[in-house]
Design a binder for these strands. Sequence first.
RNA 1: GCGCCUCUAGCUCAAUUGGCAGAGCAACGGACUCUUAAUCCGCAGGUUCUGGGUUCAAGUCCCAGGGGGCGCACCA
Length: 480
Amino acid sequence: MSQNLPYSYKKTNDIGELISRYADKIDPGETTDDFVTVAGRLMLSRPQGKIFFGNLEDWTGSIQVFAQQPNLDHFEDLIRFSLGDWIGVQGNIMRTKRGELSIKMSSVTPLAYTKHGFGDKFKGITDTDLRYRQREVDLWANDSPKKVFLARSKIVAHIRNYLQNLGFVEVETPILNLIAGGAAAKPFITHHNALDTDFYLRIAPELYLKRLVVGGFEKVFEIGRVFRNEGLSTRHNPEFTLLELYQAYVDYKDLMILCENLIAELAQMLNGTTVVTSNDKQIDLKPPFLRRTMEELIFESIGEKVNVHEDIDHLRNVAKKYGVIFDESWKQGKLMLEIYEKTTESNLDGPIFVLDYPKEVSPLARTHRDDDLLVERFECIIGGKELCNAFSELNDPEDQRHRMELQALQKAHGDQEAMEVDFDYIRALEYGLPPTGGLGIGIDRLVMLLTGTAAIRDVILFPTLKPISLESKIEGEEID
RNA sequence: GCGCCUCUAGCUCAAUUGGCAGAGCAACGGACUCUUAAUCCGCAGGUUCUGGGUUCAAGUCCCAGGGGGCGCACCA
């Protein structure tokens, strides 16, 4: 049967284009001379004796198709199509007596058949398990995922465009890493047979990208998948997409301007406004974003003086008071960060830049020019979620070696997320890294923000799921 | 990893206190020349997630396991 189906089909128009072109044209009952060829899935079918109405949907929209028996060969085939079958349609643009823009079919061609029923034609598919495991079904049975993923594509394309216009060069760096550096996270491990060597999947491209700046690439960025061996939640997927960019000769203050302009620009491009809705709250992404130090924000939130110069017992008392479980080895910096995350971060609607993190928790950021225990770092918080992380990059090889050694010490004491000493990276810094600013943006969370999506799984086409047992419903119904 | 909730026909959902497992849509057969989730007639569709247990009787109650959701923890 399928050998009789065509191998290609030349359509002349996207459906969405026809809908907007003829929106205010053609009187009810009028048929035009405009002849089009379109293709898509037959989503609704209303045969009515010797006439036929249906709805044909492609990825730009849905349009009614109409046929009258004497005017269409093989009329009988039409009513035998199943909902979901792919068909090609040729005909004239018309408007029905009731005013519905339609295509008056003069020929119809089957392109592919579906063997499985799709969801309820009104409600689609609501079973989240099925929606994630068989995204192809979700995408054609439900409307909103299609919109979200088309928006995601636009967002990523626009980021590339925006950065390239600023003179940034897109690069690709290794995913198989001998040392998983550039972030605090537990890595995945894999194995290369020929080298008989274990590799880590990267947790961040950071160190490679800065090596490129050492090499003279003054503005670089990478949009790529990173992998962190952590739990799943509405905000976390073990593999996710990170944008990192590095620019020579700028500091973190310059990057705030780039960051807020980029985010506002994306919102404007996608939604025609800088106002987005997050958790039923309206948030305006219009620059400039607020800029506050972590110390200020903690004080505003709980009225306690928390900073890296305070007596450690005072910080421990504050931690206890707010239910922060801490380790005796933590110094002021780590305590401060944990207190901030527990008491302050999730209450920040933003958009806001949180500035000046403790050096203790930022091993790759450059020491603050005004405070030896802080670094020049900011995170951008919107809707209580961390969206971006950036700093003036540490470019002193001796300082970097020292801080990596401290990290390695922590790792030796059981901190699975601490870094190792990356001698290749330190050697690169010895060749000279110019003053550089680096910015990372979580693309998945950015898409969530811009599309008003609550769960990260709804912005990732195939989110990580538990494996399903052999007797499961998916196995049971497939491959007949 | 811990806690709470959830799983019934291809899809969306019912099933009273533990008392014969149902409807709409889809599929299948038929009618219908302007429908809009078309309508009408007919037909068929089940390991109630799995395995145990209590009971005269379990979709319903109990135990264990699996999938999913939410919250916490970890993190971006």
